[in-house]
Amino acid sequence: MEFKTPTLEDKKELDYYLLKDSTRSCDFNSANIILWNSFYKCQYTIIENCVVVKTDEEGTSFSYPMGNGDKKKAVETIMKYCKEKEIPFIMHGITHEAEEEMIAMFGDIFKVEYDRDEADYIYERESLATLKGKKLHGKRNHINRFKENHQWSYEKLNDENQLEAITMLMEWKMQNCSPEDVEKHEEVCVSKNSLIYYKEFGLTGGILRADGKIVGFSLGEPALNPDTFVVHIEKAFANVQGAYPMINQQFVIHEMEGYKYVNREEDLGEEGLRKAKMSYRPAYMLEKGFLRFK
């Protein structure tokens, strides 16, 4: 069983298998797998017509097989690989649905440790678009201040505004990234590559302008479950009041018509990010964890 480091050239092969399956998890969008491969040391292989991704999480761990092939045989192949390599059998990104499927295939021989830091935030699209209700009153106020203070516009990411968006990202980096914050620098690198290769990755982007200048942008794509849209990246200038809630809302309004849910990914345990994501009142948390033998 050979694993390969995913590149943009592998997107077509990954999508061939991934799109035959369904999940709201952000872990199985091919753009995420490819763009983050250097940070998480992602590699993939095809087993029994399913994609399996190996990362350096928990030493070495494997994703749940995704595709329409024989998932039991695929998992058995991973188990055999682990035995040969003399490494523990660990699977990452396991949802409750995947846990139930594992129990159905193998019996109650596993335990899953769910990690709050890795849980995806799932919102109702309508809630993010309208921001109705007392609990979202503060968001509406920030947006109103933004509209009052600026001549603003929203536009779709395209070849004409692409370079300007990258320039805005580099300015954002200067304001937000300390030299020792390796993960933040990797996040900026992923954001930059997403802007450069947005068409090749099949990403949809949105741009927010205030008085002619780009002050925020977002990038995302549909999840494997067609009722859900995943927001991979959102950047805005924090010193522009209302820029973050404004790009959030406008991106949902313009690019997510017809979707029921919006996955805004995990917070990775970052306190400020968790507070911001919780303030939008998620419909539920999509829990993910590590699966091991009991």
Rank of each mutant, 00 (worst) to 15 (best):
R281G: 00
N225Q: 14
I233S: 01
K275H: 12
G242F: 03
L273M: 13
V231W: 06
G206V: 02
V230D: 12
A243Q: 01
F201R: 05
L219I: 13
L203Y: 03
G216F: 01
G269H: 05
T204L: 15
L273G: 02
G258L: 09
L268S: 10
M278Q: 14
M278I: 10
I214M: 07
R209I: 09
E271Y: 08
E234G: 09
E221T: 07
E255A: 11
P226T: 11
V252L: 05
E200N: 14
V240F: 07
A236P: 01
L273D: 04
E257H: 08
P222Q: 13
K199Q: 15
A276W: 08
F217T: 00
L208V: 05
G206M: 06
D267W: 03
M278S: 09
V215F: 02
H232A: 08
F237S: 00
A276Q: 09
M278D: 15
H254G: 00
Y261W: 13
L208E: 00
E257I: 11
K235V: 00
I233M: 10
N225L: 14
E257K: 15
E270W: 06
D211Y: 03
E257Q: 15
L219M: 15
Q249C: 06
R264Q: 08
N225I: 12
V252M: 07
V262Y: 01
Y259D: 05
G202V: 06
K277S: 05
Q241T: 12
E271F: 10
A238Y: 11
D267F: 02
E200Q: 15
G212M: 13
G272C: 05
G216T: 03
K199C: 03
T228S: 11
Y280S: 04
E265K: 14
H232C: 08
I214F: 06
Y284H: 15
V252Q: 01
F201E: 05
A243L: 03
E270V: 15
V252R: 02
D267S: 04
R264Y: 12
A283Y: 13
E266L: 02
A210M: 09
V252T: 10
V262K: 01
L268G: 01
T204E: 15
S279F: 09
Q249V: 02
V252I: 15
F217V: 01
K199N: 15
V252A: 02
I207F: 06
D211R: 06
